[in-house]
Amino acid sequence: MIWVLAECDNNGPKAITLEALGAGRLLADPLNLKLCLILVGSNTSACAKNLMRKADRVYSLEDPLLFTYTNEAYNAALAAFLGRQEVRALITPGTSTGRDLGPLLSVSLGMPYSQNTVGLGVSEGAVHIRRRLYGGKLIETVTPATGKGGVIISIMPGAFEEAKDRGTDGEAARAEVVEGLLREEALRIRVKGFAREAAGMDLIEARVIVAGGRGVGSAEGFRLLEGLAALLGGTVGASRSAVDAGWMPHAAQVGQTGKTVAPRLYIACGISGAPQHLAGMTGARHIVAINKDPGAPIFKVADIGIVGDLHTLIPMLIEELKKTKATPIAR
């Protein structure tokens, strides 16, 4: 079976869960295996409801001690459950949670782990995994050495098409947490709190990112970018130079030592396009570059490039977009 680990928030499944299901289909259909989704938590029903039509079987692994994510409890519960299942591949989201948990599951389940996966396929019955290396400078294809042995595949956000609804609901199934497996006093890690960061919505999930670099010139300059982002229902990102200058928090940094993003639309404003920045954004579906230097390397990776001063262009662009009252994109 092909397994997909779901990730949900209060609004239901995250986009990456739908992408992971889309990725899973690329293996399940040619291998003629069932696509099984697994939801972990203390009350997964709300999230499961939205996903029934996208998988062949939907498992809920529930326990009060799984209410808040800790890698320790999730790893114990998932390893005990999946250890008793046939697993040809387990697809995990390339989010902070998935990346935290994946290596632990790899050891617990005795399965190899592949990160930053951007493509999946089946060739002569073998699973082929395409993944990024060196910040996207190279693409490597690998296959499990043991042939049919299981593999954990962490996918890059934005790299796969979201799964489509099938005609019928999948089967609902319960995954029992082994009695006595999780004991509060035995858990070594405890979550004490969560502080939301002011930097707009989460970059990884954003459909539109308006990113600024040194060319934005100041923290106030970023207000202009925020205006454009708000109009498009997106969020604001930054190059390292802009973060180092103190104009934006590090959470907004895109690139090798920041976030790797793959939104539908990436608008790079006053960013030169250093390899370390490109490492984080070339997976975007559409790339717009605005730069006053016609020789800036960012133009090489752009679908459309505007040579000009961003401080002049962006206000004009906002006016143009307002004219047609572009509806903000629903997330």
Binding site: K137, E140, T141, V142, G149, V151, I306, M316
Partner: peptide, 25 residues
């Protein structure tokens, strides 16, 4: 032994044939 075998290694096609607008802003 590496549990994942390399099948191939390639340069990605990062470059896009973009349109450049350099005229009237």
């Amino acid at each position: 032994e590496n549990p994942l075998k390399r099948v191939s290694l390639a340069y990605p096609s990062m470059e896009r044939k973009g349109r450049m607008l350099a005229g009237d802003i």
